[in-house]
Write a protein that binds this DNA or RNA. Structure first.
Length: 353
DNA sequence: CAGTCGTGGGA
DNA sequence: TTCCCAAGACT
């Protein structure tokens, strides 16, 4: 980096011309016309975008804002309904904290989001990145957002070879030095747009980068190799068995998983623990049949191979574990993906209604 | 601090 | 097939 001021203006000029259009974004032209973002929508989009692609978020965001236009609407919703709508997006603790946060804002803040980074940091599901993002984007405060894009952009601008996550404090420090007092919200979004479209992880498009004259890695020829990252450990494989019971009237047995941990709070098929040697654990007495094949699914830190057993049970079957869901109400899309995959395989082995 | 916590798309 | 990774937070 040779000239911070030049970099800031070059980046904002580029953003004015090339800002991505997204449903939750107030673009540079609109902002200039005096349109201000809705903090509720900025917050909702930022939580959804945590470790999640823009493509995956777009539909979910539109669905959520259509169902719940204001934070009070979301706060008043049933937990199970929100979890079902979040299904498929992953990292389900986000949905649990989303509801907690909505209720705190609705009840304790009269539906008005705090407008400072420090106050936002105290809310459930809002960490350093999201607090800074809301403060900068929704309230145009001079806060510095540091996400994966920003880490990549600044590690290249300054040709920093320290591996992540060790480099995080240093990258944060230089990112802060780059944050302007004018248009900090647009600057934050510009940094992320640059990282997403030009300063990409592989094959960065340095030839069209607005910061090419400021980039140390470009001079050193190291851009494509940055940021350095510590090697990650291999994923183990775990095994499990899931049980899909279908009543003669078509209802299926599902349980709500415990409120914390993997897939916490989500619907799922009863089953064994997932480990090296699962012990059979059918949820009720029945003539269980093994389904040919298995479900393969990869989570963040392990691979899962899930065997499936199915059974047809009488319409008056009682259960102490989970509950039967009438087939008219049962939506596979309300299940987390691994459970939806299990349904796809199990249903092929069940008799048609 | 290092582990936990999803998913789908692209190379 | 396998690996990487995408606007991280929480413990």
């Amino acid at each position: 980096m040779r000239d911070v001021t030049s970099a800031q203006s070059a980046l904002l000029d580029w953003y004015d011309a090339h800002a991505r259009v997204m449903p939750w974004r107030v673009g540079p032209a609109e902002r200039r016309a005096g349109i201000v973002p809705d903090p509720y929508r900025v917050w909702l989009s930022e939580v959804m975008l945590q470790q999640t692609t823009v493509a995956a978020v777009r539909e979910k965001y539109l669905r959520f804002t259509a169902l719940w236009p204001r934070v009070e609407d979301l706060a008043a919703e049933e937990d199970a309904t929100v979890m079902a709508e979040w299904a498929g997006l992953g990292y389900y603790a986000r949905a649990r904290n989303l509801l907690k946060c909505a209720r705190v804002v609705a009840v304790e803040h009269s539906g008005v989001f705090p407008d400072t980074r420090d106050a936002l940091l105290g809310l459930p599901g809002i960490g350093p990145y999201t607090a800074a993002a809301i403060a900068a984007i929704a309230f145009d405060r001079p806060e510095t957002v540091v996400d994966g894009n920003v880490e990549r952009v600044v590690s290249r601008l300054y040709d920093i070879h320290t591996p992540l996550p060790e480099a995080k404090p240093e990258l944060t420090s230089v990112a802060e030095a780059l944050t302007p007092t004018q248009r900090p919200g647009d600057h934050a979004q510009a940094m992320m747009d640059l990282g997403a479209t030009i300063c990409t992880p592989r094959r960065p498009a340095c030839g069209i980068c607005p910061l090419i004259a400021e980039c140390a890695a470009r001079v050193a020829g190291t851009a494509a190799d940055l940021p350095k990252k510590s090697p990650k450990t291999a994923k183990p494989t775990r095994l499990g068995i899931a049980y899909v019971a279908q009543r003669e009237d078509g209802a299926v047995l599902l349980e709500t998983r415990p409120p914390r941990g993997l897939l916490g709070g989500m619907l799922g098929w009863p089953g064994t623990e997932w480990n090296d040697a699962p012990v059979a654990a059918p949820p009720l007495e029945a003539d269980w049949q093994q389904v040919p094949g298995e479900v393969r699914h990869t989570f963040t830190h392990f691979h899962l191979r899930l065997a499936l057993q199915v059974a047809v049970v009488p319409a008056d079957t009682q259960t102490t574990r989970g509950g039967f869901h009438g087939r008219a109400d049962f939506r596979p899309a309300a299940l987390p993906t691994v459970m939806r995959k299990a349904w796809d395989l199990a249903s092929s082995a069940l008799p048609p209604l």
